[in-house]
Design a protein around this nucleic acid. Sequence first.
RNA 1: GGGGCUGUAGUUCAAUUAGGUUAGAACGCCGGCCUGUCACGUCGGAGGUUGCGGGUUCGAUCCCCGUCGGUCCCGCCA
Length: 589
Amino acid sequence: MKNRIYCGSTDLSQKGQVVLLAGWVQRVRNLGGLVFFDLRDHTGLVQVTPDPYHEDHDHLYETAIHLHHEDVVEIHGLVRRRPQGGENPKMATGLLEVVATRIKVLSRATTPPFLPEEADSVQEELRLKYRVLHLRADRMQRNFRLRHRLSQTVRRYFDENGFIEVETPFLVKPTPEGARDFLVPSRLHLGRAYALPQSPQIYKQLLMVAGFDRYFQIVKCFRDEDLRADRQPEFTQIDVELSFTEEPEVQEIMEGLMARIFQDVKGQTVPVPFERIPYHDAMLQYGSDKPDLRIPLKIADLSGIFASSEFRVFSEALAGGGAIRALNLPGAGGYSRKQRDDLLEKAKSWGLGGLVFLQWLPAGITSTVAKFMTPEQMKAAAEIVKAQSGDLIAIGADRNIEKLAVGMGQLRLWIGRELNLIQKDEHRLCWVVDFPMFEWNAEMNRYQAAHHPFTSPVLADLEAYADQPGKIRARAYDLVLDGNEIAGGSIRIHDREVQKKIFQHLGFTPEEAQAKFGFLLEALELGAPPHGGIAFGLDRLAMILVGADSIRDVIAFPKTTAALSLMDGSPAPVADEQWGELGLKRLTS
RNA sequence: GGGGCUGUAGUUCAAUUAGGUUAGAACGCCGGCCUGUCACGUCGGAGGUUGCGGGUUCGAUCCCCGUCGGUCCCGCCA
């Protein structure tokens, strides 16, 4: 529509001018003989009223009073300053109004199940069914416009740094490792299937071998796993790979990207470089491999202080090879018995056996288990968790170190929320490095790649711990923003011999490896440059940047936690005929 | 696969310690009145298979079982 201006861009500088507007009717106020309505587009609202002196006023008035919520209209009118006393300071365009000389209804709306401006208080089920109405809401419009800016910033940044965007296939070879694949049965080759890619991992490595040197792609990925607030079966990655590189270069480029993103999208300056935290330190101090550094608390180890404790919970934890760890709750010294009991219940749900509390009251440090502790021990504990008068110290103990770490990590997050220790609009980034290469999978009775099987191990570790794979470190790194893993990457294996050893540790025979990943292995023998890269979860990043609680708020047409699309009804039943064409037969439902 | 929360008018919610007349309110919707409203006001009206199925009971929105949907978490997500 030529010469159309946006509702939110109307301005007193246009006073006296005739403008053309188009949008949705938000609200009609019919005073009888006088009628106002608010016209909305994605930029905002402006008040419109029919021109009382227009030759066709009666008709204009009739049209206006019969407008409904969400009707789509086109308005010709004169911008004018509102009469004295008629201004609305709550409205961005509240000083002016548009006196309509023409109101054209472009499309009538039936009564909507909910109004866009109220969508945030409506059940998710309805919002997903009538997604267009929710997306019309101001907050969602802003979310998607921010996401757009984010994508553009990413493209610009990588382009400026010599990266090129190359598309990789969506119909790929199914991979046995990792997440469950979405399968696409082949019609031309019955009994065979493509998979939708979990990520373009192998393909981007092939691009490195192909000499593309610096690659990136903003690309959909698919994983058939259960959903979460921050997980959808289809999601978008910013996928990046570089040749002739090592960790510091990859990390530096990504730090530059994050700084640019925060500058462009939020107008915030992010200090670089980011802290590098070894995996084991992260687990010890934060109880997580994705620490939220906005919470100014670290988990302290009290095993030394209570090494000779006669308190059974402590002595048994230590005797069993475990540990005693503690967190300070600033200002919570006055917690009532009930508050402490409630916290204890939560601790159990986090996998902790329990918690022991030390209360630092004005009179001194006390505890319900004080008889098992010396005053010196309590004082030392308080010191090591950096407690002061008025604080509460929560101590956990377990013979299982991992369980204890994770439980204390949950406690730390809870404290951060409960005691409001996180500043609004504060963001903290860090790298977590030195991940273990392998994780033991008890179910399958073998080691699994913690990152993926093409991640380079620390070569010295590979030699030194040939018989203790659990100790081998990976050259992998995760980028963590406010307690969310927003990117993960690694330096890859470019040497076929190293790759063979890794497959051995994973329990693959050479034949299996060849069958699964032969095309990559062969390419690696055709002259593979050292290379490495990273992949960002774009949706998750967008979610954090817009301050949303769910990834659904930055995905236009998301699925429910049952992986259904309530809007279009997918997945949908398929006729037997169509299954048959794929060589498939329906068994149930 | 497991656990928590949840489903009542178009929407958001209510419905009295173990259940009891005609399931209420606000917003929205329909109609009347109203010339400066902006959450317009005001008067009136319509609108309900209490998600669905079963059970207990003289009687179920309420209790029990099952089921479907939504949501959050654990497992899972190389």
